[in-house]
C-alpha cells in the first residue's frame, strides 16, 4: 500500500488540483480544501493551515503539502509551514504560480495596473469580487476600488469559451480593458508532481 499524501489547498484551487492529479494519475493524493474566502482575511490563513496540517497528520497522512502561495500573509504562512515541516508553493499568490513565478516576477511594475482573474475567479466573480467589495450595494465604490487599474488579465487555466465570456463581462463591469493569457496550470503542476 502506498503512503498517504494529503494536499491542503485553498478552495479556489480545488478544480485545478483535481484536474492535475487526475491527469498525472496521482490517485493516492488526498485533497483537503480550506474556504477560498479566507483570502478576505489573509491573517487567518496560517492558523487555518496549521489546524488542517494537524488534522491530516492525525488522520495518518505520511506527507502533507500546502497548496497556497504567500497569499497576502506577508511571509507568515511560509514561516508557519517551515515550522510545521511542510512544503508550500513558492511565490506571492496563485496568479504568479499559474503564470509561472519567474515570468510573473519578470513582468514587475509593468503590470501593476493589471487586475487578475483566474478561471476560478472568472467563474465566481460575483461571489469573490463583486459582492465582497460591496459593488452590488454601492456601485459608486467601483472607482475607489478599481480606479487605478487599467486592464483585467484573465489568466486562463483551460480553454473554455464560457469562462472567456465571463471574464470579458467582468472586465466591462469593472470598466477595465480585457486581456486573456493562457497559462495552463503553471507551477502548480510541478508542485503537485513532488507529491507523487
Amino acid at each position: 500500500m502506498s503512503e498517504r499524501v494529503r494536499v491542503i489547498a485553498c478552495g479556489a484551487l480545488a478544480r485545478e488540483i483535481l484536474a492535475v492529479l487526475r491527469a498525472d494519475g496521482l490517485d493516492h493524493v488526498e485533497l483537503a480544501c480550506l474556504p477560498a474566502d479566507l483570502h478576505l482575511r489573509p491573517e487567518r490563513i496560517p492558523d487555518a493551515v496549521e489546524a488542517a496540517v494537524a488534522e491530516a497528520r492525525a488522520a495518518g497522512a505520511a506527507r502533507v503539502f500546502v497548496a497556497y502561495a504567500d497569499c497576502g500573509t506577508g511571509g507568515l504562512l511560509a514561516a508557519r509551514c517551515a515550522a510545521l515541516g511542510v512544503e508550500m508553493i513558492p511565490g506571492p499568490h496563485c496568479y504568479a504560480f499559474f503564470d509561472g513565478v519567474e515570468r510573473f516576477e519578470a513582468r514587475g511594475d509593468a503590470e501593476m495596473r493589471c487586475f487578475y482573474l483566474t478561471d476560478f475567479l472568472a467563474r465566481q466573480f460575483d461571489a469573490f469580487v463583486w459582492r465582497p467589495m460591496g459593488l452590488d450595494r454601492a456601485p459608486e465604490l467601483r472607482d475607489m476600488l478599481f480606479g487605478h487599474y487599467e486592464t483585467l488579465v484573465h489568466l486562463a487555466q483551460t480553454e473554455d469559451p464560457e469562462l472567456d465570456r465571463l471574464a470579458r463581462e467582468a472586465a466591462a463591469r469593472l470598466g477595465l480593458r480585457h486581456e486573456r493569457r493562457v497559462t495552463g496550470y503553471g507551477d502548480l503542476a510541478a508542485f503537485l508532481a513532488r507529491a507523487a
Binding site: 478576505l40 482575511r41 465582497p132 467589495m133 460591496g134 459593488l135 450595494r137 454601492a138 465604490l141 475607489m144 476600488l145
Partner: peptide
C-alpha cells in the same frame, strides 16, 4: 474585529 469589511469602511470614509 471582522465586524465590518472593506466596502463599509470605504463608505464610512467617504
Amino acid at each position: 474585529d471582522g465586524i465590518l469589511f472593506v466596502p463599509e469602511v470605504l463608505l464610512a470614509a467617504n
